[in-house]
Design a protein around this nucleic acid. Structure first.
Lengths: 140, 140
DNA sequence: AAGGATTGATACCATTTGTGTATCAGTTCT
DNA sequence: AGAACTGATACACAAATGGTATCAATCCTT
C-alpha cells in the first residue's frame, strides 16, 4: 500500500506540474493548497530535493519547483523517492537481499514477474500525463 | 510490500498443493518443512481456515489440507486472506473509504487503474500454476 | 479410561514503521 | 534589521509487524 507520504509527494509534484513552470512555490502555499500538514510536507520536499525531483531556493520569495520537465518525471521515480520500500513486492526481491530460496522458489519468480509489470507501468506514467488529465477534467 | 505473514501463507499453501491431496498435514510438519516459526504459522493457518482456504482436523493425526482444488485457489484469495490491506494501492481505494477527492483526483483514477491490473494478474495465478512450475524446476 | 498429539481461540510482547511536530541554523529579498 | 523562506535533525506517539505463550477442546491409540 502506498503511504500517505507517497500520496503527498505525488500530489505536491502534480501541483507544481500544473502551475506555471520555473516559478518558486513555497512549502506553505503547497501545504494549504494541497491540504498537507506543513511540517510533514517540508520533510517530504527535502527528500524530493535529495532525489533531484525538485530544486529549491532559500530566502524570501524562495520555494521549490520541478527540477526537470514534467514529461520526464515518472511515477516510478516519485514512489521510489518517497518510499523506496514500496516498489518491491517482497523483501526477498530487494537489492542486495540474500534470499536463500532465490534459485528454487517459484513464489520468488512469480512475484518478480508481477513486480516487473508494475514497474513498467509506473515508469510509463509521467507527471505531464497526470497534469494533462487533470486539465481535461470536467469541473464538478 | 507483501508481509512475511503473506509470504508464509503462500508457501504453506503451496506445500499442501504439492503434496498428496486429501491428507492431513500437521502445523509442526509444515513449520519445519517450510522454515516458518511454528506458533506464528498456527495463527496464520487459523486465518486461512476462517477464509475457507484450508480445512482442519483436530486430534492425533489431524492437521490441515486444502479446502478446495489447487486449480481454483488464486493468489488473490491468499493475499486477501493473509493481509487484506496489501491488495489496495492507496487507502482511498479501500471499500467504504470516503475519499473527498474521489470525483476529481487524477491520482485516484490512475492508482485505481494500476490496482485493477494487479488484481487481474493475482486472480489469474492459481496454486496449481505455482505447483506445476515447482515440479518442472531443475534440481539445484 | 488415560495420555499424547493435534487444532481453536486469545492474550501478550518487542521492535519497527507511519505520521506528524518542534527546533534552530542558514539564506535571501526588501 | 527583519521577515519569509529552506536545510537538517530530533522528538513523539499510535499502529502494524513478527513472534511467543497459554489453555481449552478434540481425536486416536492403547
Amino acid at each position: 500500500m502506498i503511504t500517505r507520504e507517497t500520496d503527498y509527494a505525488i500530489r505536491a509534484l502534480l501541483y507544481l506540474a500544473c502551475g506555471k513552470p520555473n516559478t518558486w512555490v513555497s512549502a506553505s502555499v503547497l501545504a494549504t493548497q494541497m491540504e498537507i500538514p506543513y511540517r510533514f510536507l517540508r520533510r517530504i520536499l527535502l527528500k524530493l530535493g535529495e532525489m533531484k525531483l525538485v530544486v529549491s531556493a532559500r530566502g524570501k520569495y524562495g520555494g521549490v519547483r520541478l527540477a526537470k520537465p514534467a514529461e520526464v518525471t515518472t511515477l516510478y521515480e516519485i514512489v521510489q523517492a518517497a518510499d523506496p520500500q514500496a516498489i518491491m513486492l517482497n523483501i526477498c526481491l530487494a537489492e542486495g537481499e540474500v534470499c536463500s530460496r532465490a534459485v528454487r522458489c517459484v513464489i520468488h519468480d512469480e512475484l518478480a514477474d508481477i513486480q516487473q509489470a508494475l514497474h513498467t507501468r509506473l515508469h510509463s506514467i509521467t507527471l505531464a500525463d497526470l497534469a494533462a488529465k487533470d486539465q481535461n477534467r470536467l469541473p464538478v
